[in-house]
């Protein structure tokens, strides 16, 4: 049944390019996580403390991000905005799509985190004369951060996996680059097999790094 000849040499030759693309994958995933964290935090706070149009905007964002396919979201930033004459670069499409998605999922994680820190912590901080800003940044958010640390790590892994959708909107991150080489050489299986290994290594690297960092960060 194995009358197929595997050709690994072209893959090995383009390995440096693939690894570089892997770095791009890591970059775009990290960047969209950073944007997602900031926006997700804002969305969570708006949903917890506000009423009216801002609340509905934040809620729509969260529900749309969570209840439609990530690929749909990418297409939206791709063709969808094209309808309004707005044409983003492939990189921008992936960054916007991933950030939109991450922000929606993280907002819910943050909301859970804020709810898990007792109100009395805020009262205690304010009773010491801390301003509301000081109480949030020094007392509440560090505790929320610990609660959402693992979900945050998982979301970063998701962002890496999701960034592979870049290949469907013409972005040459790891998957896009792989497809580019594969379609030139017709060694589709070999190329994608190596890429699968690279993704696996990236994911394991993130999980290991996160675990090490947690040991340093959380001593309590």
């Amino acid at each position: 049944m194995f009358d197929y000849n595997f050709h690994w040499r072209p893959v090995l030759k383009s390995l440096p390019d693939l690894l570089e693309a892997g770095l791009l994958t890591l970059q775009v995933a990290t960047l969209s996580m950073v944007v997602g964290i900031v926006i997700g935090l804002v969305l969570a706070l708006v949903r917890m403390h506000m009423r009216g149009p801002l609340y509905w905007l934040a809620t729509s964002w969260v529900e749309l991000a969570r209840n439609t396919p990530a690929l749909f979201q990418l297409f939206f930033f791709g063709f969808g905005l094209g309808a309004f004459g707005l044409h983003l670069s492939p990189f921008a499409i992936v960054l916007c799509g991933l950030s939109f998605n991450c922000a929606g999922y993280l907002a819910e994680n943050f909301r859970g985190g804020f709810q898990a820190v007792p109100d009395t912590q805020l009262r205690a901080a304010r009773s010491l004369g801390m301003s509301s800003w000081q109480a949030y940044t020094r007392i509440i958010i560090p505790q929320v951060f610990r609660i959402v640390y693992h979900p945050l790590t998982n979301q970063l892994v998701w962002a890496v996996l999701m960034s592979s959708l870049g290949m469907l909107v013409g972005f040459r991150e790891l998957s896009g680059e792989t497809q580019f080489f594969a379609s030139r050489t017709f060694r589709i299986f070999e190329y994608f097999a190596v890429t699968a290994v690279i993704y696996y290594v990236i994911v394991k690297f993130i999980l290991a790094a996160s675990r090490l960092l947690a040991m340093r960060l959380f001593r309590y």
Binding site: Q121, S127, P142
Partner: peptide, 10 residues
């Protein structure tokens, strides 16, 4: 000083 002592756990 509160009933629930509210020490900052972190």
């Amino acid at each position: 000083v509160f009933q629930q002592w509210n020490s900052f756990p972190h």
